[in-house]
Design a binder for these strands. Structure first.
Length: 284
DNA sequence: ACCCAGGCGGGCG
DNA sequence: CGCCCGCATGGG
């Protein structure tokens, strides 16, 4: 059974959305204009066709329309966002990735991915996540044929040995991932944070060993949809100092205050556009 | 050989 | 608080 969804949409840049370091970049594949990613025991395929978003969910138990609207935040009006975060430098970042959507992802998947991301490269994160899905993720079948792997539940990671995890070349992060999986399986329900405010979510996440300011903001933003979150990594720090602080070295807390003052409740969008502009236009 | 990567925890002053 | 360091691993 295949669920289909189609909606006219002008401001949707699928390639930029995929290619922006968000969780779909790691759990999904983008080939020939089609983004395919695992969700709810299915593989969802998304592509653009003559100004329409088309989506198919191969498998069962999934409403493709609801999934795509929610996942790509189609209820956000991007043009209004652009108006609200606009300034001369931001306009260049927007132009570079116009139509890029923020995505809303599963809290555990987002948590695991961004624990792996710390002090790592996008390339290696991708490889590691692929290996983890291949090794631990439940296979997804369509008509008896395997069409992919889900991202593993926290319980599977919790029950794996640290040695097994290390085979995914996540190095010193294996301990963090394993402990987080234990915590989220046996002691704390990540899904109980859904609907809470940004600061409560961030505080609860930072109680987890291996999750600090930046990773907590990534999870709050892409796992819980909190647009007040502003993850500051090396790239964001560098680009803010260069474009907004007259080249002056600035502390993380200083930059948080700056972003809060400048972009307020939409700083998550500002961050995403700055990030992709930074790594693609200025990175190597 | 050398440098860097979507940072974090711990130790120090 | 702020600063500084080590950290596993892979790629340029």
């Amino acid at each position: 059974m295949i669920e289909k969804f189609s909606a006219r949409f002008s401001s949707f840049n699928l390639m930029a959305t995929y290619d922006s370091g968000q969780p779909l970049n790691f759990i999904g594949k983008y080939e020939k204009g089609i983004l395919a990613y695992p969700c709810c025991n299915s593989i969802v395929k998304v592509f653009l066709h003559k100004g329409f978003i088309e989506a198919e969910a191969e498998g069962m138990k999934l409403n493709a329309a609801l999934e795509v609207k929610r996942r790509f935040r189609l209820y956000d009006n991007l043009n209004k966002v652009y108006e609200n975060i606009s300034d001369p430098f931001m306009d260049k970042a927007i132009e570079y990735s116009r139509g890029m959507r923020l995505t809303l992802n599963d809290p555990w998947e987002t948590t695991a991915i961004f624990i792996i991301s710390q002090f790592n490269s996008i390339h290696n994160i991708k490889k590691s996540v692929e290996m983890i899905m291949e090794k631990f993720g439940r296979p997804i079948y369509l008509y008896g044929k395997k069409i992919g792997n889900a991202f593993p539940e926290s319980r599977v990671i919790a029950e794996a040995s640290a040695e097994e995890l290390k085979k995914a070349s996540i190095g010193f992060r294996a301990k963090y991932l394993h402990e987080a999986a234990n915590y989220c399986t046996y002691s704390f329900d990540l899904y109980s944070l859904q609907g809470k405010d940004y600061y409560s979510i961030k505080e609860a996440l930072m109680d987890i060993d291996g999750i600090g300011d930046k990773v907590a903001d990534c999870i709050a933003l892409m796992g819980y949809g909190k647009l007040e979150a502003f993850p500051i990594d090396r790239w964001i720090k560098r680009i803010l100092e260069k474009a907004y602080m007259h080249g002056n070295p600035s502390s993380i807390s200083e930059l948080h205050r700056f972003a809060e003052r400048k972009w307020g409740s939409l700083q998550g969008y500002a961050q995403q556009y700055l990030f992709r502009y930074g790594i693609k236009a200025f990175g190597d």
